[in-house]
Nucleic acid binder design. Structure first.
Lengths: 295, 295
DNA sequence: TCGATCCATATGAAAAAGATATGGTAAACA
DNA sequence: TGTTTACCATATCTTTTTCATATGGATCGA
């Protein structure tokens, strides 16, 4: 099926007859008849019921009309957006963020928008593996994901490192501000999880390294829920600093981890071989800027 | 711009080079180059930056890609829906209802869905004149509007008649269950209005007929607000029975109108020359059914 | 520097789309 | 009840578009 055919079809529907539609389209009547016939054959459905001189739209035709109008409009929108970009009026930036979020994002976006007020944004939250897919199929320009991660095909633009914290409810009876892995082993643990990915794996590895096996009672990829669970004493957890910062209002106790574990890493990624859009480049710069300032 | 060209473009973007895209599309490379060039010329924008052997997507190209993918998907959706309809799997019915609503609609829809579980619905609320426009441009299959109304080009499938009531707060001091127009003249009146249309006009006419002039203090097209206004004593109103029924919880007093005024009319309309879809026909039948049963 | 790789252009062939002419059928009219 | 009119369908020819083959030019890697 073809855009041209859709336009023809719309004209026929709106005029109610082929002859009038042909006039409106500045063409002869027979080719219109032909094209309509061709469409019906291709779809294997009758779009109009021919009744002598007149014709009546069928249910199938009605459905096609609805879609056709929308598709034609979409096409025009596309053309208009390209013109707008070409003339520098607008731009668009789609960013994906991990379920663990990044507390600096609002600040970065505000910074960004001050320099580029003509840009619009799209922010999607999803887990890191999904974000990778979305970047790969170009639904996202950039994504902030948790590392480690299989990064072939992606460009890693910036890496942020932060410590993990052990976090529990007020029922945790630990002296001091830090805790060792062997003591953590004693507590029921909720793991911030997205399908055995990144952080989840990191945490398990730290235990394995020390010959310990954690008592994992739950995996939870929604941080809000996770922090609620922790504060109600359902279990304790190990999360990157960012998560603790983002849930300051939740009544919990946090402890630094003894034994120098690997830090939590998150990375700003994009597609490897694609040239960066102006918007993307500007965002990466802003991200790095805020990153340096924060250290 | 053409669907075929969009497909070509998408292939080029996803393969990253023309040669590979040509292979994927089972065609030679030169025509692809040509088509791409043609697109760029038509849009007046460069979609790829040529850099020796390779090519990089521009911002414009990126935008087009986003749209192209969506448009191609829409087209496929359209085809699939038509197949589904052709095989009787599904159907769709878009109905518009007046701001004065119809308390029987939920019942009718339930009745309808029992016989046609495969149908999906779309219900839009708007004022009668807007509904007419929507029907005319085929965004709606059917609409329930208030009469009288200019109906050329529309088919009137059913007319429902109901009495008007005079409705006021508990501060209305009237003996008995009915009231005359001359007494109504004494009260501040809120008119259920949509741009001097249907009901609004009817009410004014009834006063004119009797040589009276009502004390209209407000027009209000949102029935919920209107009934709230009435119950707080802001003013009284004249509304069809349906409105009273739909707001049973609101503390008001209602009175029948003396002097045999014209009843309130509402009609089920569709497009005149369009053959009715199965869904529409079934809905009209259900509507008539409920109409007869209610009398 | 040579070969490989990839895009662009030129030219001719095939396919598609459109125009004109014409026939058939059903509604409108006398 | 014939006749006219309005509209869709089909046939044939012309024009336009699209695609393939052949080839040239540019860049990257060995």
């Amino acid at each position: 099926m073809d855009i041209k055919q859709l336009r023809y079809f719309v004209a026929i529907v709106e005029e109610g007859q082929i002859t009038a539609a042909a006039k409106r389209l500045h063409m002869a009547q027979p080719p219109l008849s032909q094209q309509l016939k061709a469409m019906e054959q291709e779809l294997g459905a009758t779009l109009f019921e021919r009744e002598g001189r007149g014709m009546q739209l069928t249910d199938e035709g009605r459905a096609l009309y609805r879609h056709a109008v929308r598709i034609i409009a979409s096409l025009q929108e596309a053309e208009e957006e390209i013109q707008a970009i070409r003339q520098g009026w607008t731009g668009r930036l789609s960013i994906g963020v991990n379920t663990l979020s990044d507390e600096r994002l609002p600040r970065i976006l505000r910074l960004f928008q001050q320099s580029y007020p003509q840009f619009t944004f799209s922010i999607q939250q999803n887990d890191s593996s999904q974000l990778c897919h979305l970047v790969r199929e170009r639904a996202l320009d950039l994504a902030i994901v948790r590392l480690p991660l299989e990064l072939s095909g992606f460009a890693l633009h910036y890496v942020k490192s932060e410590p993990y914290y052990f976090v529990g409810g007020y029922d945790i009876a630990e002296p001091g501000g830090s805790i060792s892995f062997s003591r953590i082993e004693q507590y029921p643990l909720i793991v911030p999880s997205t399908e055995g990915l990144g952080i989840n794996q990191m945490i398990r590895d730290e235990f394995v390294k020390r010959g310990l096996s954690p008592n994992i009672v739950c995996e939870c990829s929604d941080m809000t829920t996770l922090m609620q669970l922790v504060s109600t004493g359902f279990g304790a957890t190990i999360v990157p600093e960012t998560v603790v910062k983002l849930h300051r209002g939740v009544p919990i106790r946090k402890f630094e981890l003894e034994g120098d574990p690997s830090p939590a890493l998150s990375g700003l990624i994009g597609l490897q071989n694609g040239r960066l859009s102006k918007a993307s480049q500007a965002f990466i710069d802003a991200y790095r800027e805020v990153g340096r300032a924060g250290e």
